[in-house]
């Protein structure tokens, strides 16, 4: 009994709450499908090179532009490389670049937003004005300009994604703080002399997590889109990495002869983006209204 007192303090998701979330998710078949797609690709990203039947870079002049068959499930490209293996391995870069970039944006953006919202005044003005400037650029344009000068590399791509999405996370975190700041439980915390860091991270952050998580999944979907677009424009991951966007671009010339070269990576992009969007949409509902049980 006593031990239970310690349990759970500061835990963001209690088992009971998780059960409620799961029940709600199960009631939305579309969101559930999206979540399944997301995790399927995640598994592919983790295991890609291990389960790929061929080396994604191995060229075979005898096997050029083969249509899909039992040997090559998604056919081969103009160098005789196995499209299936290239799609599988391509997932790794998407999660690696988009995932880490989004994560970085979430951490930095949320911290800046919390700071701006809670400290207020000059800090708020300064931080938000600077971030507004980033929002004044269409995302793809800013990414292109930054990559043009910094040069395309994995690290730069991750940093660019992070820079692009920091303002969104900061805005959400800030508005959550501004909303929560006047809530009475925060005032109660101030009345008992809690430190600013306790109020920000223990009282506010857990309440801001659900919308931030939703935002993170939306941003991740956008980042896939962005990385693919950059790849298509020739500004993405440098070769020989099998970037989905670049694959589509390279396949355009062979579209009449070998449409599979284009269709499979294109389908992979769309499926992952749509799946992640559906999951984000579902999460919004899952986290939506407060958890209620045994009371009105």
């Amino acid at each position: 009994m006593k031990g239970k007192v310690e349990a759970d303090h500061g835990r963001l998701v209690s088992p009971r709450r998780a059960a409620v979330y799961w029940r709600r998710l199960r009631l939305q078949p579309v969101a559930l499908a999206g979540t399944f797609i997301f995790f399927l690709f995640l598994v592919i990203a983790l295991l890609g090179p291990l389960i790929a039947p061929y080396d994604y870079a191995a060229q075979d002049a005898t096997q050029r532009l083969q249509s899909p068959s039992l040997g090559h499930w998604m056919g081969t490209d103009n160098f005789g490389r196995d499209v299936f293996s290239r799609v599988l391995v391509g997932a790794r870069d998407v999660f690696y670049l988009g995932g880490i970039g989004t994560l970085l944006a979430a951490v930095v953006g949320t911290s800046l937003g919390l700071l701006a919202g809670y400290v207020g005044r000059l800090w708020d003005e300064a931080i938000m004005r600077v971030l507004d400037v980033l929002l004044a650029f269409p995302a793809l344009l800013l990414a292109m300009v930054l990559l043009a000068t910094a040069g395309p590399s994995d690290l730069n791509l991750i940093l660019v994604i992070a820079v692009l999405y920091i303002p969104m996370f900061a805005r959400i975190a800030r508005s959550m703080v501004l909303d929560l700041r006047t809530r009475e439980f925060i005032e109660a915390a101030r009345l008992r002399g809690e430190k600013r860091s306790y109020i920000l991270f223990r009282e506010m952050l857990p309440n801001a997590l659900p919308p931030l998580l939703v935002e993170a999944s939306i941003r991740f979907a956008y980042s896939i889109f962005l990385v693919a677009s950059l790849g298509f424009l020739g500004l993405g991951v440098p070769p020989p990495n099998p970037d989905w966007g670049r694959q589509v671009n390279e396949a355009r010339t062979f579209f009449d002869a070998a449409p599979w070269m284009l269709l499979f990576p294109a389908a992979a992009i769309s499926l992952l983006v749509i799946g992640t969007s559906l999951m984000a949409d579902g999460l919004r509902h899952v986290f939506g209204p407060p958890v209620a049980r045994g009371s009105r």
Binding site: S229, N249, L262, A266, I269, I274
Partner: peptide
């Protein structure tokens, strides 16, 4: 609309041309 959100322009463009 969700499906189209997930479809990058370069994919749509190539399919429309085809």
């Amino acid at each position: 609309s969700l499906a189209f959100v997930g479809l990058p322009e370069f994919v749509t463009a190539v399919l429309l041309i085809a």
